[in-house]
Amino acid sequence: MRFIYRIAVVAGLAALTAGCCNCRSYQKKTRRPLVGTEWQLVQLGGETIRPEEGRFTITLSAENGQLSGVGACNRLSGPCKSNDRRGLKIGPLASTRMACPDLKREQDFIEALESATHYDMDGPMLLILSDGELRAVFQAKP
């Protein structure tokens, strides 16, 4: 009876391992490069953000080490540096000064970007972290 139990445990572990390989394969296929991809904000400070065309997006440029983007209505730009250990330094960011609704969220967006110390990626998702705390989540735009 113990032999059958051991076989069942080994079979279960093998199934879990095989399932994990599919996850890694999916992540590799859907992963987008950090630089050159347009990223759409989907979560800020733990709050889900409904994606809106032309709002709360960023793009990192390799040529000049710059971040460009759009907040609620203002254009953003500033220096950006990343390294091979997933370190990330953004800012200080400059923005236009148009008055528009949702300026509070735009300010929170800028603060989350400027506080970045690291990033992580999960498939088509970009996670912005500040000393281990998740500040913002972006999804790669098609």
Rank of each mutant, 00 (worst) to 15 (best):
M1H: 09
R2C: 05
I7L: 15
V9D: 03
L13Y: 07
A15Q: 07
L16S: 08
A18P: 01
C20A: 15
C23H: 14
C23D: 11
S25V: 10
S25A: 14
Y26D: 09
Y26K: 08
Q27M: 13
K29Y: 10
K29F: 08
K29H: 12
R31Y: 04
P33T: 13
P33C: 13
T37N: 06
L41F: 07
L41E: 02
V42N: 05
V42M: 09
V42R: 05
V42P: 01
G45R: 09
G46C: 09
T48I: 14
I49K: 01
P51E: 11
E52P: 01
G54C: 08
R55E: 13
R55G: 06
I58C: 05
I58N: 01
T59L: 14
T59R: 14
L60D: 03
S61K: 11
S61E: 12
S61N: 14
A62R: 14
E63P: 01
E63F: 09
G65V: 05
S68G: 09
C73T: 07
C73P: 04
L76G: 02
L76A: 03
L76Y: 03
G78M: 04
P79A: 15
C80T: 10
N83P: 05
D84M: 09
D84N: 12
R86N: 14
R86P: 00
G87V: 04
L88T: 02
I90F: 02
P92M: 06
L93H: 00
S95R: 10
R97C: 01
R97P: 00
D102Y: 07
D102M: 10
K104C: 00
K104D: 13
F109V: 03
I110K: 04
A112E: 06
L113A: 02
S115N: 04
S115C: 02
A116M: 06
T117V: 02
T117W: 00
H118N: 15
H118D: 15
H118R: 11
Y119G: 01
Y119Q: 02
D120N: 11
D122K: 09
D122Y: 12
G123S: 07
P124R: 11
L126C: 05
L126G: 01
L126Y: 02
L129N: 04
S130F: 04
G132T: 09
L134M: 08
L134I: 04
R135E: 07
R135V: 02
A136K: 02
F138D: 01
K141V: 14
